[in-house]
Amino acid sequence: MATGGRRGAAAAPLLVAVAALLLGAAGHLYPGEVCPGMDIRNNLTRLHELENCSVIEGHLQILLMFKTRPEDFRDLSFPKLIMITDYLLLFRVYGLESLKDLFPNLTVIRGSRLFFNYALVIFEMVHLKELGLYNLMNITRGSVRIEKNNELCYLATIDWSRILDSVEDNYIVLNKDDNEECGDICPGTAKGKTNCPATVINGQFVERCWTHSHCQKVCPTICKSHGCTAEGLCCHSECLGNCSQPDDPTKCVACRNFYLDGRCVETCPPPYYHFQDWRCVNFSFCQDLHHKCKNSRRQGCHQYVIHNNKCIPECPSGYTMNSSNLLCTPCLGPCPKVCHLLEGEKTIDSVTSAQELRGCTVINGSLIINIRGGNNLAAELEANLGLIEEISGYLKIRRSYALVSLSFFRKLRLIRGETLEIGNYSFYALDNQNLRQLWDWSKHNLTITQGKLFFHYNPKLCLSEIHKMEEVSGTKGRQERNDIALKTNGDQASCENELLKFSYIRTSFDKI
């Protein structure tokens, strides 16, 4: 039985969820670079991206490699990797027998973001014989899940209580170790020597080791999670996991709180800001991140802002960003909400898709409305799209047979046209069989910064309504002859009103 693990408890099935942008060198404390989270699957090609990484700022997932063999891993080693800020997950990587050479110096898994409450997941690794993470000293947050690894031993010899604050939620089941077939031998045991430290858990006094050649490092209890030197002297209180010299914040392997210019500090002093819960960055760093993602459509890219001495992905609820200094300031009234469309555009074809934009005031991208039916549609669209004030790209209304009016965009005031449909149009209306009105132009103002209007096959939309939009939106004169079809717009509506004058002759039985 794995020490510190839980057996036999019912657990939810383990679901495996399925960018080499360097964020800056980590400095003297770390020998390499800070790398983003990685999802490495199918083959070993991307694994080489770990070569210079000291910190993975995010998670590391290595999974679904069915053609790899043990010899493929023999020359692979990433000794610079010290810390993973989120979680480490391995799933069905064939041929991998140990992690001792792959990650010989991995010391800390912070667990800032977890995989279903777990910071370390080893699942269905069919050839893994031992973990071998002999320098792993601290899992700051989260638990361990090690399950269905039929060859995995050296679990009962690990004292997880020396690595985690609590072992109650560890789930370590259905491994070879369960069948008591392992016969784990710690260093020196074969020669009758006791080389590794022994600890007591559940009444068992057991030597602690990761492999037959690597003991588990056990520091004096007084050192807590700070770690200790090879001689057993406690590291500085700002260290986490390990250090090369005692009581020196510049000799830590990793930091308990924050890293700044080669030393570990309790908090980031001005003019620095907390970033990702582990390091200090200056304003320029946060500003660069903001600008890199301002026009990016890459998933996970955030326009970072500053709030409460932190550089964070977005302002919290009730705050909006001051564009001059990136500071989050309290909103006066309802907060603006910028919604970034991942692929640059979004099609609204149902109430469900409209709900995804609920509360958005600025759309960074283009909207395509293609709704053919739905219950209580006008009210639903207004509830979900009615706060949109600005669209950076274009607005396209296409084959939306259920629409009679666009009044559900009740606050839309600006279409920038930074991206144009077919390279020309910022407003595009095609084949809307029941569209009769755009907006009530006596109450609604709309500016279209650039781009043209396109109207074709809107049989109940009168040309007068379209011409009014040209005047109000500032697009009059931009359109070419064929942009607004004269014969297919309003051709099934009563669009022309003329005053009919009647004269009559009164007659009676005795007068003409």
Rank of each mutant, 00 (worst) to 15 (best):
F285S: 03
N282R: 15
H302L: 04
L120T: 02
P246F: 11
A198F: 10
C234P: 05
V305K: 08
Q245M: 09
C53N: 00
S143F: 08
I312R: 05
E97I: 10
M137S: 10
N322K: 14
R69D: 01
L174C: 13
M321P: 15
V265R: 01
G111R: 00
L88F: 09
G111L: 02
P220T: 09
C209M: 02
I82H: 06
L99M: 10
T157N: 13
L327M: 08
S213K: 15
C243L: 01
G95M: 03
E130I: 08
P271S: 04
E49D: 07
Q204T: 05
K251L: 08
G300H: 14
G188D: 10
Y118H: 10
T329H: 04
N150D: 10
D75M: 13
P246G: 12
L128F: 12
P187R: 05
G203V: 07
N242I: 07
D39L: 06
L89P: 00
V265C: 02
R298W: 11
P271L: 02
P271N: 02
K100S: 14
G203M: 10
N42M: 08
K310C: 04
N138E: 14
N138L: 11
H226T: 13
V305W: 03
Y87E: 00
C243P: 00
Q276W: 04
E231G: 15
C53L: 00
V265M: 11
N202T: 10
S284E: 15
N135C: 05
N105W: 02
Y94G: 03
T85G: 02
F283H: 10
I109G: 00
G142E: 01
Y304M: 05
V218I: 14
E168Y: 06
V144N: 02
Q245E: 14
D247Y: 14
L81P: 00
I40T: 03
Q216V: 12
I185H: 05
F285Q: 05
C53Y: 02
C243E: 01
R263D: 00
G183L: 05
T229Y: 03
R145G: 03
L152R: 01
F115A: 12
I62W: 02
A254S: 07
S237R: 11
W160A: 02
H48V: 09
Y30A: 15
E124H: 14
D72C: 13
I40L: 11
K100F: 14
T68W: 12
T85W: 01
E238P: 01
N179R: 13
G95N: 05
N308P: 01
H236I: 02
K251R: 13
K176E: 09
K193A: 03
Q299F: 07
D86S: 03
Y272L: 13
T199C: 12
L131Q: 02
T329V: 08
D177P: 15
V108T: 12
M65Y: 15
D159G: 13
F116P: 01
G227Q: 14
F258M: 09
E180G: 07
E266S: 14
A119V: 03
A156Q: 09
Y272A: 01
G241Q: 05
G142V: 01
I122P: 12
V144I: 14
F91R: 04
H307R: 02
D247N: 07
Q216K: 05
W278Y: 03
C280A: 00
S161W: 04
H214Y: 07
Q303G: 11
Q216G: 05
L106P: 01
C223V: 01
E130Q: 09
N282D: 02
R41M: 12
K67Y: 04
L332W: 14
C255V: 00
L44K: 07
I306M: 04
R110W: 02
R256E: 05
L99T: 06
D277W: 05
N308G: 04
H302V: 07
E168V: 08
M137P: 01
M125T: 05
K148L: 15
G333V: 03
N325C: 12
G318H: 07
L131K: 00
F123S: 15
C264Y: 00
K80E: 03
P313D: 10
I158L: 12
M137F: 05
T140N: 10
E97T: 07
R92W: 10
H28D: 10
L60A: 01
A190W: 08
T45W: 14
M321E: 01
M137V: 10
Q303V: 07
K80D: 02
L96T: 01
D72G: 06
I82P: 00
I201Q: 10
L332Y: 05
N42E: 14
R110Y: 03
P270Y: 07
F73G: 09
G142P: 00
R162N: 14
D101G: 07
G58L: 00
N325Q: 12
N308M: 08
Q299V: 08
S225D: 04
L102C: 02
G300N: 05
E49S: 15
F285H: 05
A198L: 09
Y171R: 01
L76F: 11
D248L: 03
S324F: 13
N117W: 09
K80R: 10
V265W: 00
P70A: 07
G58T: 01
P79E: 09
N149M: 01
P79K: 04
E33G: 12
L88M: 08
G318F: 05
I201K: 06
A198D: 11
G227Y: 13
M83K: 03
P70L: 12
E124V: 02
D177S: 02
T85P: 00
H212F: 10
I222Q: 07
I146P: 00
D288S: 13
D177Q: 07
P316L: 02
S296A: 12
N179Q: 07
S296P: 06
H291V: 14
R69A: 15
R279K: 05
